[in-house]
Protein backbone atom coordinates (compact mmCIF):
# COMPACT_ATOMS: atom_id res chain seq x y z
CA UNK A 1 0.00 0.00 0.00
CA UNK A 2 1.53 3.24 -1.14
CA UNK A 3 -1.20 5.76 -1.70
CA UNK A 4 0.90 8.55 -3.17
CA UNK A 5 1.53 9.81 -6.67
CA UNK A 6 4.97 8.70 -7.83
CA UNK A 7 7.67 11.06 -9.04
CA UNK A 8 6.73 10.57 -12.70
CA UNK A 9 3.06 11.35 -12.05
CA UNK A 10 3.98 14.45 -10.08
CA UNK A 11 6.31 15.58 -12.86
CA UNK A 12 3.50 15.06 -15.40
CA UNK A 13 1.21 17.29 -13.31
CA UNK A 14 3.92 19.93 -12.99
CA UNK A 15 4.65 19.97 -16.72
CA UNK A 16 0.95 20.31 -17.59
CA UNK A 17 0.60 23.07 -15.01
CA UNK A 18 3.56 24.93 -16.50
CA UNK A 19 2.28 24.53 -20.07
CA UNK A 20 -1.21 25.72 -19.14
CA UNK A 21 0.11 28.63 -17.09
CA UNK A 22 2.06 29.86 -20.10
CA UNK A 23 -1.01 29.43 -22.36
CA UNK A 24 -2.92 32.33 -20.73
CA UNK A 25 -6.04 30.22 -20.37
CA UNK A 26 -8.32 33.08 -19.20
CA UNK A 27 -8.12 34.72 -22.61
CA UNK A 28 -8.62 31.34 -24.32
CA UNK A 29 -11.73 30.82 -22.19
CA UNK A 30 -13.08 34.23 -23.17
CA UNK A 31 -12.49 33.55 -26.88
CA UNK A 32 -14.15 30.16 -26.57
CA UNK A 33 -17.17 31.70 -24.80
CA UNK A 34 -17.67 34.01 -27.79
CA UNK A 35 -17.51 31.07 -30.18
CA UNK A 36 -14.02 32.00 -31.41
CA UNK A 37 -12.28 28.66 -31.51
CA UNK A 38 -8.77 29.37 -32.81
CA UNK A 39 -6.98 29.76 -29.50
CA UNK A 40 -8.99 26.92 -27.98
CA UNK A 41 -8.09 24.55 -30.79
CA UNK A 42 -4.42 25.49 -30.52
CA UNK A 43 -4.53 24.78 -26.80
CA UNK A 44 -6.34 21.49 -27.50
CA UNK A 45 -3.45 20.42 -29.74
CA UNK A 46 -0.89 21.23 -27.05
CA UNK A 47 -2.90 19.23 -24.51
CA UNK A 48 -2.99 16.34 -26.98
CA UNK A 49 0.77 16.65 -27.56
CA UNK A 50 1.25 16.42 -23.81
CA UNK A 51 -0.42 13.00 -24.11
CA UNK A 52 -3.62 13.73 -22.21
CA UNK A 53 -6.11 12.26 -24.69
CA UNK A 54 -3.84 9.32 -25.44
CA UNK A 55 -4.16 8.33 -21.76
CA UNK A 56 -7.82 7.59 -22.48
CA UNK A 57 -7.27 5.58 -25.64
CA UNK A 58 -6.06 1.95 -25.65
CA UNK A 59 -2.57 1.24 -26.96
CA UNK A 60 -3.82 -0.73 -29.98
CA UNK A 61 -5.48 2.47 -31.25
CA UNK A 62 -2.42 4.72 -30.91
CA UNK A 63 -3.11 5.59 -27.29
CA UNK A 64 -1.27 5.02 -24.02
CA UNK A 65 -4.20 3.93 -21.94
CA UNK A 66 -6.39 3.45 -20.29
CA UNK A 67 -4.51 5.02 -17.39
CA UNK A 68 -7.13 6.40 -15.02
CA UNK A 69 -4.67 7.69 -12.40
CA UNK A 70 -2.69 9.73 -14.93
CA UNK A 71 -5.93 10.87 -16.55
CA UNK A 72 -7.10 12.06 -13.14
CA UNK A 73 -3.83 13.91 -12.60
CA UNK A 74 -4.30 15.60 -15.98
CA UNK A 75 -7.91 16.59 -15.39
CA UNK A 76 -7.08 18.19 -12.06
CA UNK A 77 -4.67 20.44 -13.97
CA UNK A 78 -7.18 21.12 -16.77
CA UNK A 79 -9.70 22.17 -14.14
CA UNK A 80 -7.15 24.25 -12.28
CA UNK A 81 -6.61 26.26 -15.46
CA UNK A 82 -10.31 26.35 -16.45
CA UNK A 83 -9.47 24.88 -19.86
CA UNK A 84 -12.57 25.08 -22.11
CA UNK A 85 -13.87 22.44 -24.51
CA UNK A 86 -15.43 18.98 -24.39
CA UNK A 87 -12.54 17.45 -22.44
CA UNK A 88 -14.60 15.05 -20.35
CA UNK A 89 -16.70 14.09 -23.35
CA UNK A 90 -13.64 13.35 -25.47
CA UNK A 91 -12.06 10.98 -22.96
CA UNK A 92 -15.48 9.39 -22.41
CA UNK A 93 -15.93 8.91 -26.15
CA UNK A 94 -12.70 6.92 -26.07
CA UNK A 95 -14.50 4.35 -23.90
CA UNK A 96 -17.60 4.26 -26.08
CA UNK A 97 -15.67 4.00 -29.34
CA UNK A 98 -13.96 0.88 -28.02
CA UNK A 99 -13.86 -0.97 -31.34
CA UNK A 100 -14.19 1.98 -33.71
CA UNK A 101 -10.84 1.86 -35.41
CA UNK A 102 -11.42 4.87 -37.63
CA UNK A 103 -12.53 7.21 -34.83
CA UNK A 104 -10.12 6.41 -32.00
CA UNK A 105 -6.64 7.29 -33.32
CA UNK A 106 -7.60 10.89 -34.26
CA UNK A 107 -9.09 11.28 -30.79
CA UNK A 108 -5.79 10.29 -29.18
CA UNK A 109 -3.82 12.67 -31.39
CA UNK A 110 -6.13 15.61 -30.72
CA UNK A 111 -7.13 15.82 -34.38
CA UNK A 112 -10.77 15.35 -33.41
CA UNK A 113 -12.77 16.69 -30.54
CA UNK A 114 -15.69 14.55 -29.42
CA UNK A 115 -18.86 15.39 -27.59
CA UNK A 116 -21.58 13.24 -26.16
CA UNK A 117 -25.25 13.51 -25.27
CA UNK A 118 -26.62 11.08 -22.73
CA UNK A 119 -29.93 11.27 -20.90
CA UNK A 120 -30.53 14.74 -22.36
CA UNK A 121 -30.63 16.23 -25.86
CA UNK A 122 -27.69 18.53 -25.02
CA UNK A 123 -24.03 17.94 -25.66
CA UNK A 124 -21.16 20.17 -24.57
CA UNK A 125 -19.65 22.23 -27.37
CA UNK A 126 -21.70 20.48 -30.04
CA UNK A 127 -20.77 23.34 -32.39
CA UNK A 128 -17.03 22.85 -31.94
CA UNK A 129 -16.86 19.07 -31.70
CA UNK A 130 -15.97 17.07 -34.80
CA UNK A 131 -17.32 13.75 -33.49
CA UNK A 132 -20.81 14.10 -32.03
CA UNK A 133 -22.05 11.04 -30.19
CA UNK A 134 -25.51 10.36 -28.83
CA UNK A 135 -26.24 7.55 -26.40
CA UNK A 136 -29.85 6.50 -26.85
CA UNK A 137 -31.82 3.45 -25.67
CA UNK A 138 -31.08 1.70 -28.97
CA UNK A 139 -27.35 2.33 -28.91
CA UNK A 140 -24.57 4.73 -29.78
CA UNK A 141 -25.19 7.05 -32.72
CA UNK A 142 -22.98 9.38 -34.69
CA UNK A 143 -25.19 12.45 -34.66
CA UNK A 144 -25.54 14.15 -38.04
CA UNK A 145 -25.52 17.71 -36.70
CA UNK A 146 -26.36 20.09 -33.89
CA UNK A 147 -28.82 22.79 -32.98
CA UNK A 148 -28.17 26.30 -31.61
CA UNK A 149 -26.13 26.99 -28.48
CA UNK A 150 -28.21 27.40 -25.34
CA UNK A 151 -26.31 29.66 -22.93
CA UNK A 152 -24.90 28.08 -19.78
CA UNK A 153 -24.16 29.90 -16.52
CA UNK A 154 -20.57 29.03 -17.41
CA UNK A 155 -20.25 30.83 -20.75
CA UNK A 156 -17.38 28.56 -21.75
CA UNK A 157 -19.74 25.59 -21.67
CA UNK A 158 -21.58 25.86 -24.98
CA UNK A 159 -24.36 23.30 -24.85
CA UNK A 160 -26.18 22.42 -28.05
CA UNK A 161 -28.85 19.84 -28.81
CA UNK A 162 -27.70 17.12 -31.20
CA UNK A 163 -29.69 16.26 -34.29
CA UNK A 164 -31.42 12.91 -33.74
CA UNK A 165 -30.65 9.88 -35.89
CA UNK A 166 -27.39 9.29 -37.69
CA UNK A 167 -25.22 6.21 -38.08
CA UNK A 168 -25.68 3.54 -35.40
CA UNK A 169 -22.11 2.77 -34.30
CA UNK A 170 -23.05 -0.02 -31.90
CA UNK A 171 -26.28 -1.23 -30.34
CA UNK A 172 -24.44 -2.28 -27.13
CA UNK A 173 -22.03 0.46 -26.07
CA UNK A 174 -20.28 0.07 -22.67
CA UNK A 175 -22.44 2.68 -20.96
CA UNK A 176 -21.40 1.81 -17.42
CA UNK A 177 -17.70 2.16 -18.17
CA UNK A 178 -18.32 5.37 -20.05
CA UNK A 179 -20.23 6.90 -17.18
CA UNK A 180 -17.47 5.89 -14.78
CA UNK A 181 -14.90 7.63 -16.98
CA UNK A 182 -17.04 10.75 -17.37
CA UNK A 183 -17.73 11.04 -13.65
CA UNK A 184 -14.14 10.50 -12.67
CA UNK A 185 -12.87 13.09 -15.15
CA UNK A 186 -15.53 15.59 -14.06
CA UNK A 187 -14.64 15.03 -10.41
CA UNK A 188 -10.97 15.63 -11.18
CA UNK A 189 -11.77 18.75 -13.17
CA UNK A 190 -13.92 20.03 -10.30
CA UNK A 191 -11.15 19.42 -7.78
CA UNK A 192 -8.80 21.45 -9.98
CA UNK A 193 -11.37 24.25 -10.22
CA UNK A 194 -11.69 24.27 -6.43
CA UNK A 195 -7.93 24.29 -5.89
CA UNK A 196 -7.56 27.25 -8.23
CA UNK A 197 -10.36 29.15 -6.50
CA UNK A 198 -8.72 28.57 -3.13
CA UNK A 199 -5.30 29.74 -4.38
CA UNK A 200 -6.74 32.86 -5.98
CA UNK A 201 -8.76 33.74 -2.90
CA UNK A 202 -5.85 33.18 -0.52
CA UNK A 203 -3.74 35.51 -2.68
CA UNK A 204 -6.53 38.12 -2.73
CA UNK A 205 -7.19 38.20 1.02
CA UNK A 206 -3.48 38.63 1.69
CA UNK A 207 -3.31 41.80 -0.37
CA UNK A 208 -6.79 43.29 0.17
CA UNK A 209 -6.62 45.68 3.13
CA UNK A 210 -9.57 46.94 5.20
CA UNK A 211 -9.60 48.45 8.70
CA UNK A 212 -5.85 48.83 8.30
CA UNK A 213 -5.08 45.11 8.03
CA UNK A 214 -5.10 42.44 5.33
CA UNK A 215 -8.55 40.86 5.48
CA UNK A 216 -6.82 37.47 5.53
CA UNK A 217 -5.77 38.20 9.11
CA UNK A 218 -9.40 38.17 10.28
CA UNK A 219 -10.67 34.94 11.78
CA UNK A 220 -14.01 35.01 9.95
CA UNK A 221 -12.10 35.04 6.68
CA UNK A 222 -9.49 32.49 7.76
CA UNK A 223 -12.02 29.98 8.95
CA UNK A 224 -13.99 29.97 5.71
CA UNK A 225 -10.79 29.35 3.80
CA UNK A 226 -9.75 26.66 6.25
CA UNK A 227 -13.07 24.90 5.64
CA UNK A 228 -12.56 25.10 1.89
CA UNK A 229 -9.08 23.64 2.31
CA UNK A 230 -10.45 20.78 4.41
CA UNK A 231 -13.18 20.02 1.88
CA UNK A 232 -10.71 19.94 -1.03
CA UNK A 233 -8.06 17.92 0.78
CA UNK A 234 -10.57 15.23 1.72
CA UNK A 235 -11.96 15.09 -1.82
CA UNK A 236 -8.49 14.46 -3.27
CA UNK A 237 -7.92 10.98 -1.76
CA UNK A 238 -11.45 9.90 -2.73
CA UNK A 239 -10.67 10.92 -6.28
CA UNK A 240 -7.41 8.99 -6.57
CA UNK A 241 -8.87 6.05 -4.66
CA UNK A 242 -11.67 5.91 -7.22
CA UNK A 243 -9.15 6.10 -10.07
CA UNK A 244 -7.45 3.01 -8.63
CA UNK A 245 -10.56 0.91 -8.03
CA UNK A 246 -12.84 2.26 -10.79
CA UNK A 247 -15.78 0.98 -8.71
CA UNK A 248 -18.99 2.89 -9.51
CA UNK A 249 -19.71 3.63 -5.82
CA UNK A 250 -16.17 4.93 -5.29
CA UNK A 251 -16.42 7.12 -8.37
CA UNK A 252 -19.82 8.45 -7.33
CA UNK A 253 -18.41 9.28 -3.88
CA UNK A 254 -15.49 11.11 -5.47
CA UNK A 255 -17.79 12.96 -7.89
CA UNK A 256 -20.19 14.32 -5.31
CA UNK A 257 -17.43 15.16 -2.84
CA UNK A 258 -15.10 16.89 -5.30
CA UNK A 259 -17.93 18.85 -6.89
CA UNK A 260 -19.33 19.95 -3.55
CA UNK A 261 -15.87 20.88 -2.29
CA UNK A 262 -15.30 22.96 -5.42
CA UNK A 263 -18.69 24.58 -5.06
CA UNK A 264 -18.17 25.38 -1.36
CA UNK A 265 -14.86 26.91 -2.32
CA UNK A 266 -16.55 28.90 -5.09
CA UNK A 267 -19.06 30.35 -2.65
CA UNK A 268 -16.24 31.25 -0.29
CA UNK A 269 -14.19 32.74 -3.12
CA UNK A 270 -17.10 34.91 -4.23
CA UNK A 271 -17.89 36.07 -0.70
CA UNK A 272 -14.30 36.91 0.18
CA UNK A 273 -13.65 38.76 -3.08
CA UNK A 274 -16.77 40.82 -2.44
CA UNK A 275 -18.36 42.81 -5.25
CA UNK A 276 -15.38 42.50 -7.61
CA UNK A 277 -15.84 38.73 -7.55
CA UNK A 278 -19.44 39.19 -8.69
CA UNK A 279 -18.40 40.71 -12.00
CA UNK A 280 -17.97 38.96 -15.33
CA UNK A 281 -14.79 40.98 -15.99
CA UNK A 282 -12.99 39.48 -13.04
CA UNK A 283 -11.28 36.28 -14.18
CA UNK A 284 -12.51 34.61 -11.01
CA UNK A 285 -15.88 34.24 -12.75
CA UNK A 286 -14.38 31.72 -15.18
CA UNK A 287 -13.86 29.30 -12.30
CA UNK A 288 -16.86 30.32 -10.18
CA UNK A 289 -19.42 29.47 -12.84
CA UNK A 290 -17.70 26.26 -13.80
CA UNK A 291 -17.86 25.03 -10.21
CA UNK A 292 -21.64 25.40 -10.33
CA UNK A 293 -22.00 23.68 -13.72
CA UNK A 294 -19.79 20.69 -12.88
CA UNK A 295 -21.87 19.86 -9.80
CA UNK A 296 -24.66 18.52 -11.96
CA UNK A 297 -22.72 17.49 -15.06
CA UNK A 298 -22.43 13.70 -15.42
CA UNK A 299 -24.32 12.85 -12.23
CA UNK A 300 -26.20 15.07 -9.83
CA UNK A 301 -25.34 15.00 -6.12
CA UNK A 302 -28.52 12.97 -5.49
CA UNK A 303 -27.68 10.38 -8.15
CA UNK A 304 -24.16 10.00 -6.82
CA UNK A 305 -25.29 9.65 -3.22
CA UNK A 306 -27.90 7.05 -4.19
CA UNK A 307 -25.17 5.03 -5.92
CA UNK A 308 -22.99 5.20 -2.83
CA UNK A 309 -25.78 3.92 -0.60
CA UNK A 310 -26.75 1.11 -2.96
CA UNK A 311 -23.12 0.04 -3.35
CA UNK A 312 -22.12 0.88 0.19
CA UNK A 313 -22.93 -2.33 2.03
CA UNK A 314 -19.58 -3.47 0.71
CA UNK A 315 -16.76 -2.97 3.17
CA UNK A 316 -14.25 -0.33 2.27
Amino acid sequence: MRFLLDAEQRAFAASLDAMLTSADTPSVVRDWSRGERGSGRALWSRIAQAGVFALAVPEEYDGLGPRPVELTVAFVELGRHAVPGPLVETVTAAVLLDKAERLLPPLASGETMATLAYGSPYALDGDAATTRLALTPDGLHLAPGHGPVRPSLDPARRLTPLTPGGELLTPTPPVGHALARARLATAAQALGVGLALLDKTVAYVKQRTQFGAPIGSFQAVKHRLADAKIALEFARPLLFGAALTMEPADIAAAKVTACEAAYTTARTALQLHGAIGYTAECDLSLWLTKARALRTAWGTPDECRALVVSGGGRRW
Binding site: R2, F3, F234, V256, T257, A306, W316
Partner: peptide
Protein backbone atom coordinates in the same frame (compact mmCIF):
# COMPACT_ATOMS: atom_id res chain seq x y z
CA UNK B 1 -30.48 8.77 2.33
CA UNK B 2 -28.18 11.75 1.64
CA UNK B 3 -26.99 11.83 5.26
CA UNK B 4 -26.33 8.10 5.21
CA UNK B 5 -24.44 8.48 1.94
CA UNK B 6 -22.36 11.27 3.47
CA UNK B 7 -21.50 9.08 6.43
CA UNK B 8 -20.29 6.31 4.10
CA UNK B 9 -18.40 8.76 1.92
CA UNK B 10 -16.84 10.55 4.88
CA UNK B 11 -15.57 7.29 6.36
CA UNK B 12 -13.99 6.33 3.04
CA UNK B 13 -12.51 9.81 2.60
CA UNK B 14 -11.01 9.69 6.08
CA UNK B 15 -9.61 6.22 5.47
CA UNK B 16 -7.98 7.24 2.19
CA UNK B 17 -6.75 10.56 3.59
CA UNK B 18 -5.11 8.59 6.39
CA UNK B 19 -3.59 6.07 3.96
CA UNK B 20 -2.11 8.99 2.02
CA UNK B 21 -0.75 10.61 5.18
CA UNK B 22 0.65 7.27 6.36
CA UNK B 23 2.32 6.78 2.97
CA UNK B 24 3.94 10.20 3.22
CA UNK B 25 5.01 9.54 6.79
CA UNK B 26 6.58 6.22 5.80
CA UNK B 27 8.33 8.08 2.98
Amino acid sequence: KPSVADALIGARAYQLFTYAAASRFLD
